[in-house]
Design a protein around this nucleic acid. Structure first.
Lengths: 187, 187
DNA sequence: TATTGTTATACTCTATAACTATA
DNA sequence: TATAGTTATAGAGTATAACAATA
């Protein structure tokens, strides 16, 4: 997504009262009547039944769970992803790691500073090109990553349990179809 | 999701080189060798094949497309969702609309200020409880919402085209299973 | 005492321009 | 001249405390 915008936030309920088809807007009769006549859950049709909103809400739910699980390791989602990519690609340039994760190079500096401060990763000055840093995990970083991978496996198991094993695989496949090619170029 | 954290950002590639199974961490042999031996895409296994990351990337992709489509209407995703919920629930309290969308009450003030400034929505002081505001769309607001709904239908059609009609419905159903009940309470 | 809307504020994530040191 | 890392900074989005008006 571009800049920042959000649709659904924390704890927003997923109410659904009307049918699946696009509900016509209610007639704009007397305002006070409408307010008085209501009182129950709001009509969120057209929102909950749309891919973008459902994606947003699901992503928030999964991340919330992720954050809770990783609190014990003091790892946020972005930190975990950085640790994992460094672990799988040791010695890569700082800018390569950042680009692979879609993180702007300037924003990646503080991120690495923190991992280095915690003794999880290291910047190694390259001998061939003294501008660049080869990024590697320390022993502590690898140990923490191993623990994190186990926690991640647990979350994935919970999700597979919720969706059914075939459901989890189907979901990932569908999501990849949305990300493999930009949506706009399609039409 | 809780606070803020992100995993995938803008334009992050979705590289996938190894198999689906958890790839073992590469041996931590000589750093310079590893850096020199590489050069191609990075190994993102364990990230792209996981629900949380795939969700995040897909949500960003869909929102990016959404933002581009709605630029002509000068509506961001959050603004569209507010317009839609007001349109479907005219006369509801300001705090009810905010809560339904998971927006904190303080943050909803500026949001409504802007919609009111643009003449799309109005705060109507309730006669029964003079603390609360009944929120309604103006005629302009309803007209803009109608145009927005059409644009939204177009995006949904693109997505259904990408996933297949059954694929789109399956995706939404799977996503709802992740949001209907908090993941944590499940185990 | 509790609720509605509001203000003020702070923290995180994201984005861009510009500097430095190297190449 | 171009690239890698960095600094500074600005803008969204989100969260909490506290206040005034009203119930």
């Amino acid at each position: 997504m571009s800049v920042s915008d959000d649709i659904g936030r924390r704890g927003a309920p997923t109410t659904q009262r009307r049918g699946r088809r696009a509900a016509p807007l209610p007639p704009s009769d007397d305002v006070e009547d409408a307010a008085a006549a209501s009182g129950g859950d709001l009509d969120l049709s057209g929102l909950t039944d749309v891919v973008g909103y459902a994606l947003r809400r699901a992503q928030l739910a999964v991340f919330e769970d992720f954050i809770a699980r990783f609190a014990a390791l003091d790892l946020k989602p972005a930190q975990y992803s950085v640790l994992l990519v460094i672990g799988r690609n040791p010695g890569r340039k700082q800018s390569e790691i950042a680009a692979a994760l879609g993180i702007q190079r300037p924003n990646f500096v503080a991120m690495l500073d923190e991992l280095e401060r915690r003794g999880l990763a290291e910047r190694v000055r390259s001998t061939t090109d003294r501008r660049s840093h080869a990024i590697v995990l320390t022993d502590d970083g690898r140990a923490l990553l191993d623990r994190a991978l186990e926690v991640q496996r647990e979350q994935e198991a919970i999700i597979a349990d919720r969706l059914g094993p075939g459901g989890r695989d189907a979901l990932v496949a569908l999501l990849h179809r949305l990300t493999d090619t930009p949506l706009a170029e399609r039409d």
